[in-house]
Design a protein around this nucleic acid. Structure first.
Lengths: 351, 351
DNA sequence: GTGAAAGCGCTAACAC
DNA sequence: GTGTTAGCGCTTTCAC
């Protein structure tokens, strides 16, 4: 059955329900919002009518009246990245389950658009904003953006995936250190000692942390750190990683394993290695982060660190909703990474 | 500078502007909506105030007053599919450019959710709805869904990517016949005659059309049609194609080229072929549809049919907006596919 | 516990 | 041209 709102010309309103139930609109509103006690007899009657007509209170009117839109804005760098797509889907599901609507905006890496959309989300009266990608993932927080966020946060809570110094944004983020631990432990256990770290830029928080941790782990194991193995200033796409890997190889840098900053990078690295006749993992092991579906497409399938997107998105959304509804929420939460071992990593055969 | 709405406690309204400009709220509204002539002197003054405060009229109030939300609903099967992600991004851009907001909902292949979200989009008073994936792509239209759509279309125009018999939905879709022509011409020119068609289900419109066209082209070229080469009842993912391809090979079916129903399928097929020692394209050529980024990841890079997502999404959105604004729009528009040749297809060497 | 009434911010007749 | 006045559909005091 379809709601009356659709089949009729005029959508049915709270007044129609009220009249038919013989009560005032206020009372109907009360049962709708569960905001006050209503004699259970009337309540039943009203509820019955609501069900009968599949009545849905007009969101717009509701928002106008109490400024509660039950809408949460999601500011994303680019949903075409499967990593963000998975997170968005998880957020959307969590929002729906809690009776909220998620509104997605992509700024496609343009800083101006990023700020513009953030403002526009605020203008739309979303009740909270979740951002992943862009300035909230940078190592050094952009001053102007911080200022903008602070003004917005005067009325609208924000939760982000990185950090934004000088703001009170809530943070739900991946434990990048641990993510590096996992991969290094895995590779060290397989006997690798010369391990390259390819892709990404170290002015991005998570990449920087991985890099730091990488060095630290080597030190803890008494292994030398070779700067040649860790090119910086790359990006997060296939081509850049392909190029960086080619350069390493051409420079004659020896290695038995490479850690890719994400699955895209890994694909570029694998391509480069194969073209030059290296076997994976016999000659060189390749591992990466994100565990997107590319890991299954790769030949051999890619060992990668998973973040459990479903849970990650849910944490993000639950935090946002918790903030809206005035619950106590810890200001920093960590997502635990886990290793998914596949065929691209193996025992080190070349010393 | 940030809008007054953010820095102050109380957001500024049309009344504030009116008072400061010494005019009535109606006049401010008129310049906001450009709905009537206002003496240019006043107009300038009002506009200056609007700019000064970066005043943005409250969307909710606007929607309530004239039922124009300037919002377009997008119902998508699953944005994690890069094909849909690209289309959504294009839609979002086109909407923004036209002053509309796109609201995305994913039903994740669940038919119940699909109908529920369609209704909820309508309840939210979106001014038009675009759907890609799901029931609008089926060969046989679901009666119940048709009924729902028809009721919704009494007030809200819909534009879809496939078809929905018994509705007046506007259609913007890919010319699947031509898409098959392109690939077949390409392969036939390379000398291939035994060509497999792997992946997908023929109860999906586009897949059915491709299948029909495939047979027709063979006939036109005086080539035999071998049912063994065209397994049905598959899906659109990597694993299914992998399995189907394995079955073909194990059954000893001879072929020199295979057309994958999409890039995911192609990846499964390539994987299967490589594992069994086939060289691509020397032993078997592989081509596919969609031209997502997977084509570049594949080794060798994949020859694929491109749909120009940017233009596709724009057509979808422009159609929706045209409908809203009462322009004449043709009810069926076709997207022209083009071939992107890469390394996975080559001259047929085995007769 | 319940109704009357004000008001959220805007647009759209309708007068002037 | 421009101001006045009703709503749009809901929530929420404030009385009772």
């Amino acid at each position: 059955m379809l709601s009356q709102k659709i089949s009729d010309g005029k959508p049915i309103t709270i007044y129609d329900i009220a009249k038919e139930a013989g009560v005032s609109p206020a009372t109907v509103s009360r049962v709708l919002t569960n905001s006050a006690n209503v004699r259970s007899e009337k309540k039943k009657k009203i509820q019955a009518l609501i069900d009968k007509y599949e009545f849905k209170p007009n969101t717009l009117a509701r928002g106008l009246a109490d400024t509660k839109t039950r809408t949460i804005g999601i500011l994303s760098a680019d949903i075409r990245n499967p990593y963000y797509a998975s997170m968005f889907i998880a957020c959307e599901q969590a929002a729906r389950a809690a009776g909220y609507t998620a509104v997605l905006c992509n700024f496609l890496g343009e800083q101006e658009t990023e700020a513009k959309l953030l403002k526009s989300l605020h203008d739309q009266k979303v009740e909270a904003i979740i951002q992943f990608g862009g300035r909230v993932d940078d190592l050094a927080s952009d001053e102007e953006y911080v200022e903008l966020v602070n003004r917005i946060m005067a009325t609208t809570p924000m939760v982000i995936t990185g950090k934004l110094d000088g703001t009170r944004c809530h943070v739900v983020r991946i434990d990048s250190m641990q993510a590096m631990d996992i991969l290094m432990e895995h590779l060290l256990a397989l006997g690798h000692e010369r391990i390259a770290l390819v892709g990404g830029r170290r002015d991005v928080l998570s990449t920087f942390e991985k890099y730091q941790r990488y060095k630290q782990i080597l030190k803890e194991h008494g292994l030398p750190f070779d700067p040649q193995l860790v090119p910086d200033g790359g990006s997060y796409d296939v081509d850049t990683a392909y190029r960086q890997m080619s350069e390493l190889l051409e420079a004659g840098v020896r290695m038995t394993a490479v850690i890719a900053i994400n699955d895209f990078s890994a694909m570029g690295i694998i391509k480069c290695l194969k073209e030059r006749g290296y076997r994976i993992p016999e000659d060189i092991s390749v591992v990466s982060y994100d565990n997107t579906y590319m890991t299954e497409i790769a030949i051999p399938p890619l060992t990668s660190v998973d973040y459990n997107y479903e849970e990650y998105g849910k944490m993000l959304m639950d935090t946002a909703i918790g903030l809206i509804e005035g619950r106590k929420v810890s200001s920093v939460q960590m997502v635990r990474p886990t290793l998914v071992e596949r065929g691209s990593s193996g025992i080190c055969k070349h010393v």
